[in-house]
């Protein structure tokens, strides 16, 4: 554990300048994950740069393109209940409200949600070996307790999963992450933001240390008619997903015109399978087709013992959620399955 200095900044430029000064500095916004990690002696920020006063990152606004810009500092709650988000991008609202608890969503921010770290037991126990926390020390999860762990895109080094719900919807909605750094601004496609563990499990995403997430952009696409978020977990609320599925689709003459399927709880990043989505386009939205697509999505899945069930569960969850998406009004609180 460590002590740290603390400084408030008011502009994005100031924030970037401050973070550039120290490789061990961290931004703090909601703090709901960073403070947790710091108390567990897992994060060791030498200095905290409080960005909560950066007013330009606090808005939700419609862009000229018709898309929607979500400020990085808007809280998860304010985003979920925002009038435009909940009518035009209700999938995002549903996914956000399936995560954490109301209290945490009132503090946690959109930017922070992208940067939350895995809940792997071994990562969270500072005295266990863990390649993500202590590269080269090993991964006890592979031969240990891995009920919560990944089945897709795993590496020999790490089978941790990325725990967000919001990001699963953002991946399905083809959001863009807006980033500022010392060399100016850049945009990162959502599916490129998080990484697979590969040989560097210590890196969760492609954000550089001296960069800041300023916001997210949702494209001008309407998925307000057919959508669903399903979250399966070991209790009905306030638990991380074992498997979650975000589905957004548009139909034309009872055929799938466009469909997006993103999975949570199964990989080191939100999981999309473009091939499976393409397979479904032009087909009828029925169990048979969804099952075929689901099987395509999990075809490379690999279990590690405790989490073997996730392979079959993923298929069932994908099918169920795609069927639920045809009747979004059947969604229940906490992204539970429809009755």
């Amino acid at each position: 554990m460590n002590n740290f200095t603390y400084k408030k900044v008011e502009t994005i430029n100031e924030a970037v300048q401050e973070i550039s000064k120290n490789k061990k500095a961290n931004f703090i916004a909601g703090g709901t994950n960073l403070i947790d990690l710091w108390k567990y002696d897992l994060a060791h920020p030498e200095s905290l740069i409080d960005i909560n006063s950066v007013s330009t990152m606090k808005q939700i606004k419609v862009l000229e393109s018709g898309g929607l810009s979500l400020g990085a500092l808007v809280t998860n709650s304010d985003t979920a209940y925002d009038a435009i988000v909940s009518t035009k991008y209700p999938l995002l609202s549903r996914a956000i409200l399936a995560g954490a608890s109301a209290q945490i969503r009132n503090s946690a921010t959109n930017g922070g949600n992208l940067l939350q770290r895995t809940r792997c037991y071994y990562f969270y126990d500072k005295t266990s070996p863990c390649n993500k926390r202590n590269p080269g020390s090993g991964c006890p999860a592979k031969n240990g307790l891995n009920r919560m762990h990944a089945i897709l895109g795993t590496s020999e080094n790490c089978i941790a999963v990325f725990p967000s719900d919001m990001c699963i919807a953002l991946a399905a909605l083809d959001a863009t992450v807006n980033v500022s750094g010392p060399n100016g601004d850049r945009k990162i496609a959502f599916t490129d933001f998080h990484r697979l563990a590969g040989n560097s499990p210590e890196k969760d995403n492609n954000l550089e240390h001296d960069e800041i997430i300023t916001g997210l952009t949702l494209p001008n696409e309407d998925f307000s008619q057919y959508y669903s978020y399903l979250k399966l977990r070991d209790r009905n609320s306030y638990a991380f997903a074992l498997v979650s599925v975000a589905t957004a689709m548009r139909l034309e003459h009872n055929k799938i015109e466009t469909i997006r399927i993103a999975l949570g709880g199964v990989a080191h990043k939100p999981w999309r399978d473009f091939e499976a989505e393409q397979f479904l386009e032009g087909k009828e939205p029925n169990r048979k087709n969804f099952t075929e697509a689901a099987k395509m999505i999990i075809k490379t899945a690999k279990g590690y013992g405790d989490n073997d069930f996730k392979i079959e569960l993923s298929v069932k969850a994908i099918v169920r959620n795609c069927m639920m998406a045809l009747h979004p009004e059947t969604q229940r609180p906490g992204a539970q399955p429809s009755l």
């Binding site: 037991y121 240990g144 209790r235 609320s237």
Partner: peptide, 15 residues
């Protein structure tokens, strides 16, 4: 390994 109330699941109101 699950020595916390996040992973040691006791029922929530929704249960």
């Amino acid at each position: 390994m699950n020595t916390n109330l996040g992973e040691y699941h006791i029922p929530v109101h929704a249960d």
